[in-house]
Amino acid sequence: MILEIKNLKKKFDNQEVLKDVSLTVDKGEVICVLGSSGSGKSTLLRCINLLNNYDDGEILFNGENILDENVNELRSKIGMVFQSFNLFNNLNVLKNCMVGQTKVLKKTKEEAKAKALETLELVGMSDFINKNVKQLSGGQKQRVAIARSLCMEPDIILFDEPTSALDPEMVGEVLNVIKKVKDTGVTMIIVTHEMQFAKEVSSRVLFMNDGVILEDSPTKEFFTNPKNDRTKEVLKRYLDNKVND
């Protein structure tokens, strides 16, 4: 078990965003988190690497309470891919992938460069290493962001709606890269609205609503035989749309 979340609670001002969320994640699992906006999906992810703090409950990472660990060391082991990419604007593509390795992992420039080139190759961005990030399209930016995260060799990568800010034609290239990343065997938690993608890539699906996990099932079961009524409703809408397409 790589991650264990016990009875997590979080309030923003007076609004309860997470109400008693519990979850365990095994090594190598790919989990998609579905649910409407405001259901607490992103907050859950951001609590795992302490970008948000939480009010109550416990998160164990590799068996250790994350609050007991050095926060910077913890974050270097937990990758994060943001909805709005957040590539470093002052650095080119290659340096975006090197800076964490040299400044956090204390690798030499040569080691960092080799690793950066390797991951940029994986995400198909080898031809752009000297480009300024502002020259890239949204899809390319997100692929570089994924590479930047992979360069840290994290134990787990958190994806916070990685395709929500993209033009429709760019969604596919990013999802394909995530599938490739899955093949490397790294554990992933992906918050997404892409049902089809969730179906293809994940081993397990969580459905969140209003701060609680309504359903936590293996992917196949989730899409064929959901237990929860609300999940059934959402799934029905999705399947109907698919027929209409």
């Binding site: 970008l51 910077n72 974050r75 994060m80 470093f88 964490g100």
Partner: peptide, 15 residues
């Protein structure tokens, strides 16, 4: 500077 820049830097483990 967009706050996401700082957040991304923190997220890869920079102090």
């Amino acid at each position: 500077v967009d706050e996401g820049q700082y957040e991304a830097a923190r997220s890869i483990g920079m102090s």
